[in-house]
């Protein structure tokens, strides 16, 4: 397996995805211990470089690194100061020159993480680049589904909301279809990207058909600025037509589970009743995020990524 960099799930082989998910289990044990620390990454340095505000993803990565005994530093840059690409390239070079082993990058532009790999020897983890991918979010979603369903293959997964702008949706589409799930997406026609059917995804402009008989429902966060951009008439209409409520959830299988990448707009893309209900795995997702990120950091920095395990 080879994950020098973790840029997305599009090009990640199935075996590597499986290995990360397998490794996340033992990692999750560490989080539940009294002493939440193993010495594994002692002496390694992880830098979180965030060009977009994000508390939870950043916290999740930093805790993952700390639980593995890596040193962490954070660099937050307001997106408004991202004027030129040199900023990113200079940052990549500077951070690597200070001896950082892993750069965790969050950036508002698609392809930023890949661009960074061309200018640094450090390993790069994409913590979300524009509308492109957010691989660790999809991995934690898949890990959460596995915990609940013990399988991914054959499941019907419905993803609802702003598919066009969602890197979470893209990474999940790659990961879930690679592991054999059937992915159905639904959103307003102004928020559906072109050509998704060619990836084997079923695309709907109303949520009901996507929800029918689903095993897993993933509600995406609606960026509130989309209304200002004219992509939807109003939040009220969006909630009425696309919001995940108890009535719509009733269309799914009886044991269907609900995911949301957070942070939620309760009452917009998901009702409080569903978000806090018995089918919701949203809190598990947060814990699992740390475990999955520990697994990724571990697999990237330990051993030779090009050789398979010989036990």
């Amino acid at each position: 397996m080879s994950i020098k960099h973790l840029l997305g799930l599009e090009h990640l082989p199935v075996e590597t995805i499986t290995k990360i998910l397998d490794t996340a289990g033992p990692m999750k044990q560490i989080i539940s211990r009294d002493l939440k620390k193993v010495p594994t990454l002692r002496g390694k340095a992880v830098a979180t470089v965030f060009y977009e505000p994000s508390t939870r993803t950043r916290l999740s990565f930093e805790l993952a690194a700390k639980y593995l005994s890596a040193d962490t530093v954070g660099l937050a840059t307001a997106s408004s100061s991202v004027v030129k690409g040199e900023t990113l390239i200079d940052t990549a070079r500077t951070v690597a020159a200070m001896g950082v082993d892993v750069i965790v990058l969050r950036h508002p532009m698609s392809g930023a993480a890949e661009l960074m790999t061309r200018y640094t020897d450090a390993y790069v983890v994409n913590a979300g680049d524009g509308m492109h991918e957010h691989p660790t979010q999809a991995l934690l979603d898949m890990f959460t589904i596995l915990e609940s369903k013990n399988r991914i293959s054959g499941l019907k997964v419905a993803i609802l909301g702003d598919i066009l702008h969602s890197r979470v949706a893209r990474s999940n589409i790659w990961g879930l279809t690679k592991l054999g799930a059937e992915v159905h997406v639904a959103g307003p026609p102004t928020m559906l990207p072109a050509g998704l059917e060619q990836l084997g995804v079923r695309v709907y402009d109303r949520p009901e058909a996507a929800l029918e008989g689903a095993d897993v429902v993933m509600a995406l966060r609606l960026q509130l600025e989309r209304q200002r951009q004219g992509l939807i008439p109003s939040l009220r209409e969006y909630a009425r037509l696309y919001g995940l409520n108890a009535e719509r959830l009733a269309l799914t299988k009886d044991d269907a589970v609900v995911l949301h990448p957070g942070p939620m707009n309760r009452g917009v893309e998901i009702t409080a009743e569903v978000a806090d209900g018995s089918r919701s795995l949203i809190t598990d997702q947060v814990t699992n995020g740390v475990a999955v990120r520990m697994a990724c950091l571990y697999l990237m920095t330990v051993g030779d990524a090009s050789r398979e395990d010989i036990d």
């Binding site: 330990v302 051993g303 395990d309 036990d311």
Partner: peptide
């Protein structure tokens, strides 16, 4: 010896 290994050890649950 983790950083010196030329392979990935399988991680099992404790």
């Amino acid at each position: 010896d983790l950083t010196k290994l030329d392979y990935h050890p399988v991680l099992y649950k404790t």
